[in-house]
Amino acid sequence: MPSRHDIVTFHDPPVPPGASPWVDGAGPSPDVAVVAADPAWPDLFEEVAARVREALGWRALVVEHVGSTAVPGLPAKPVIDVDLVVADPADEASYVPALEARGFVLRVREPWWFEHRLLRGTSPTSHVHVFGPDSPEVVKHRIFRDWLRGNPDERERYAAAKLAASAASSAAGEHGMQYNARKEQVVRAIYARAFAATGLL
């Protein structure tokens, strides 16, 4: 279990010199379009989750719907975000080939950030974020999701930030990482209120 300090801290380690998080020439998505909430997103998550569980069996310790598509009524990029917890994300041989056999493709490898890996899926488009049992990011994602689900005013505040960031990034020809940066201040303010409400701050 991650510590309280790690949960409420935003860990942004720099990419080590000479390293890249992107696998085989991949890069940040140029698609920053945010669309209206789709009530089908939870069902699409279940499709992705079933493929992950079928691929990994008991090695999938947690398969959870996170991100904006997990919040009813929230506009989002139409990508299903999934947190997958495995015993050791660094042991790619224990899960990556099985997921690749189900159509997922490894796109990101970040050993310097809680051994995070990201695999992209299609039909539906999905991002499977792989972390270990001690990663605070999984707890963060769940708190943020549940806070937005339970607080309509925060959901609307975040929706406005997302739409504004999408419009600005689209106009500037920016990619997904820059879109995320444009809404980061609002995201962290929402996190702070959620952490305070839960007693973590």
Rank of each mutant, 00 (worst) to 15 (best):
M1C: 07
S3V: 12
S3G: 08
R4L: 13
I7T: 01
I7L: 03
V8H: 00
F10M: 11
D12T: 14
P13M: 13
P16V: 06
P21N: 11
W22I: 10
G25S: 02
G27Y: 02
G27H: 10
V32F: 03
A36I: 12
A37F: 13
A37E: 00
W41M: 07
P42S: 07
D43Q: 12
F45S: 15
A50K: 08
R51I: 01
R51A: 10
R51L: 05
R53I: 04
A55K: 02
A55N: 01
L56R: 04
W58C: 03
R59Q: 14
L61Q: 15
V62M: 06
V63H: 13
E64H: 02
E64K: 01
V66N: 01
V66F: 06
T69E: 09
A70G: 07
G73D: 05
L74R: 01
A76G: 04
K77L: 12
K77H: 07
K77T: 05
P78T: 07
V79H: 04
I80K: 12
D83C: 11
D83G: 05
D83E: 01
V86W: 05
V86L: 04
A87W: 06
D88R: 01
S94L: 06
S94V: 06
P97G: 07
E100G: 06
G103Y: 03
G103T: 10
F104Y: 12
F104L: 02
V105F: 03
V105W: 08
L106N: 10
R107D: 05
E110V: 14
W112P: 00
W113R: 14
W113Y: 12
F114K: 08
E115C: 15
H116L: 11
R117P: 13
L119E: 12
P124N: 10
P124F: 03
T125N: 13
S126F: 08
S126N: 11
V130D: 08
V130C: 08
F131W: 03
F131P: 03
F131R: 02
G132K: 01
D134V: 09
R142E: 03
F144M: 09
L148F: 13
N151P: 06
P152S: 04
E154K: 14
R155H: 05
E156I: 12
R157G: 14
Y158W: 10
Y158T: 06
A159P: 07
A161D: 05
K162H: 01
S166D: 02
A167H: 02
A167L: 09
S170H: 05
A171E: 10
A172Q: 09
G173L: 02
G173E: 05
H175S: 08
G176H: 13
M177V: 09
M177Q: 07
Q178W: 09
Y179L: 04
N180W: 06
N180K: 04
A181I: 11
R182W: 05
R182M: 08
I190L: 15
Y191T: 10
A192L: 11
A194V: 08
A197C: 10
G199P: 11
